[in-house]
């Protein structure tokens, strides 16, 4: 009951904002090209989502037809780049972060370089990414993996460095080898940090995918928004933006659900 109340109060502000927006448009106070009404956005959104041609069983299955809409294709394209980029970036960051967190030598070797590269926004790599990887998915995936790399790296390093030393003392007391200490104590103790890093990295990947699609590819939500701009289709721009928002929210909810499930032993800040 309380949960529904919570959800209800969470939906109140968006509803009021929508109503205000609709009012502004209906009263003709804003130019429809500059800010189309929510209804117009909704109509465009539907048109963008729905399959372009009538269903024809000769062309393939019903499911394939359902997914043939432009919006679905764009969303799948963006999602594909986000996931590939995230797994490449995160997959490289995780082992490096574990090594840097565990070994002072590794930390000393890599940290200066990391600190110099970290503040460079992935967008700054756009010219090089095109030079190195040409056009299409590769430069986009490259940019996204850079975006996902650093949050995962920094959090993994912090996670390993912040393992409470008492757990290591227990490990040594029970006779654990260094390898066992790493796999059974340091790694699980660091997972809350690693998950946080993955979540932030995924968020960054979503930001970067939109930018990357504005330069090098010809589908995806970022591309579609830019394309709509050329035609001054502001309703489609807004529909695309909300799609990105909802997709991002969906992924984040999935990730946080996964981490809550895997970290059910965890209770936020560790008490003794």
């Amino acid at each position: 009951m309380k949960r529904y109340k919570h959800a209800a109060s969470g939906i109140l502000v968006p509803l009021v904002a929508l109503a205000l927006w609709q009012l502004l448009s209906s009263m003709g106070w804003v130019n429809a090209t500059i800010l189309p009404s929510p209804l117009r956005v909704l109509v465009k959104w539907w048109a963008y989502l729905r399959p372009l041609e009538a269903f024809d069983s000769a062309q393939g299955s019903y499911l394939k037809w359902c997914l043939s809409g432009e919006l679905i294709q764009d969303a799948l394209g963006s999602l594909y780049r986000v996931l590939v980029g995230f797994f490449i970036g995160g997959g490289l960051a995780l082992p490096l972060g574990l090594a840097m967190g565990y070994s002072r030598v590794m930390y000393g070797l890599f940290n200066p370089l990391v600190q110099v590269l970290r503040p460079i926004p992935p967008i700054a790599y756009i010219p090089l990414s095109i030079l190195w990887f040409g056009l299409g998915n590769p430069p986009a995936v490259f940019l996204i993996s850079i975006g996902a790399f650093f949050p995962v790296l920094m959090n993994t390093v912090a996670g390993v460095q912040n393992v409470d030393s008492i757990y290591l003392r227990v490990g040594r007391n029970l006779g654990a080898s260094r390898l066992t200490q790493f796999t059974h104590i340091i790694l699980p103790a660091a997972t809350p940090y690693i998950f946080t890093g993955a979540r932030i990295g995924m968020g960054t990947a979503f930001i970067v995918v939109i930018v990357s699609e504005m330069i090098a590819v010809n589908n995806g939500l970022g591309y579609r928004i830019l394309e709509a701009r050329e035609y001054l289709w502001s309703d489609k721009i807004i529909a695309g933006m909300f799609t990105i928002g909802l997709l991002g929210l969906g992924i984040d909810t999935l990730m946080s659900g996964l981490s809550t499930h895997l970290l059910k032993w965890h209770r936020g800040l560790e008490q003794s």
Binding site: R169, N173, P188, W265, R267
Partner: peptide, 17 residues
């Protein structure tokens, strides 16, 4: 340190995971 001298800590130090 070694398992021939098991230690019990004031702060329990159980592995929370």
């Amino acid at each position: 340190p070694g398992p021939d001298r098991g230690m019990v800590f004031q702060e329990y130090a159980l592995f929370p995971w």
